[in-house]
């Protein structure tokens, strides 16, 4: 039986996202997907889902929804806390609510985006092998658009064994949530405002003072920022090589330098190709927190090597697989 919610208040921008659409890049279809992929994956893991199941990405708070059936959900991210009966619900934990429950998102000043997973995943059609919403071309997700008041969202009826077991145990004991939770903090870097970067192919196009300035100065996230990319304000960079870069593939995390010397961090909905020289890319492990930065937040960049970035990525994936193992052991048939 599928679980169901209805949207009472959609909030600023709420879309269905998964881990993105990778196989159509050559047709200029952007990756899209969750901006904070780590929070997306943890929300899924907490209800026993596969990481790629679709979640709802909420932007800031000011949203609410109603359980139309019994629902098993979880959330992760830094844009909001889930509030039920005036009580803040814990994140990264499975949460069981009965039909009729109204859940509200209240502001979390730390970040911007929050992911809501449901056992079985949100059931929307696959478009080009993904459920992610891409608003510019109005495809994917829930009817190719942001969620609106009155929308009714279903879960897929296919529950994993772990999801079923979580559901059974909470139901038997009439609990809202179990005593365990995933520790997201242990996966996050200590310095939230410092992004580790790997210098890019066109690094030699910039003069030395500009490179030093890039690695030492503070930059501010500009108001123009969105799911396509973050515009940064700060000291403009100066190029010593003035030649033009012929458009070539780019990917989320790449930091482009515009004609006026300003930095743009490309994110989930970025174009697949770009013609601006790149100074660096944000390490994959720091991209999730980067997506939690809000306009007005300050950020710094610190350099790591390509090999370090790759090792950090592999370590992160290893840690995530341990979480999955721990949860499945907990819910193995005893």
């Amino acid at each position: 039986m599928s679980m169901k919610i209805s949207i009472i208040k959609p909030g600023l921008l709420s879309t269905i996202q998964d881990r993105g659409r990778y196989r159509y890049l050559a047709q200029a279809v952007p990756v899209s997907g969750a901006m904070d992929e780590l929070a997306h994956r943890l929300a899924n893991k907490a209800v026993g889902n596969d990481d790629h199941y679709a979640t709802i990405e909420f932007t800031y708070a000011d949203a609410s929804f109603k359980a139309e059936t019994t629902i098993l959900i979880s959330y992760s991210g830094d844009g909001a806390f889930l509030l039920y009966n005036s009580e803040v619900m814990p994140a990264e934990k499975p949460l069981l609510f009965l039909a009729g429950s109204v859940i509200t998102l209240i502001n979390n000043p730390l970040g911007m985006r929050t992911y809501l997973a449901i056992a079985g995943g949100w059931d929307v059609p696959d478009v080009m092998e993904s459920k992610s919403t891409y608003l510019t071309a109005a495809f994917g997700g829930f009817k190719g658009r942001a969620l609106q008041k009155g929308d009714v969202l279903h879960s897929s009826t296919l529950l994993s064994e772990i999801s079923s077991e979580i559901l059974n145990r909470l139901t038997e004991r009439s609990l809202t949530y179990p005593n365990w939770r995933i520790s997201r903090e242990s996966l996050l870097p200590v310095k939230r405002e410092e992004l580790r970067v790997v210098l890019a192919n066109e690094i030699s196009w910039f003069d030395a003072p500009s490179i030093i300035s890039f690695l030492t100065n503070t930059y501010t996230i500009d108001l123009k920022s969105n799911r396509m990319g973050y515009h940064l304000s700060g000291k403009p960079l100066v190029r010593k090589v003035k030649k033009e870069l012929l458009s070539t593939a780019v990917t989320p995390g790449v930091i482009q330098v515009t004609g006026s010397g300003d930095l743009v961090i490309l994110l989930a909905d970025c174009q697949t190709t770009g013609g601006y020289p790149r100074i660096a890319h944000v390490a994959a492990v720091d991209l999730p927190l980067c997506a939690q930065l809000k306009p007005g937040d300050e950020v710094r960049f610190s350099e790591i090597s390509r090999d370090e970035a790759e090792e950090l990525y592999l370590e992160r994936e290893h840690d995530l697989s341990l979480i999955t193992t721990a949860i499945s052991l907990k819910y193995n048939k005893t």
Binding site: A26, S247, T248, A249, T251
Partner: peptide, 18 residues
């Protein structure tokens, strides 16, 4: 290997590092 993206003078190859 996940996918490739040809451009004017380049070919970019996307893959799963694991």
């Amino acid at each position: 290997l996940i996918t490739t993206v040809p451009a004017y003078t380049t070919l970019t190859v996307f893959f799963d590092p694991l």
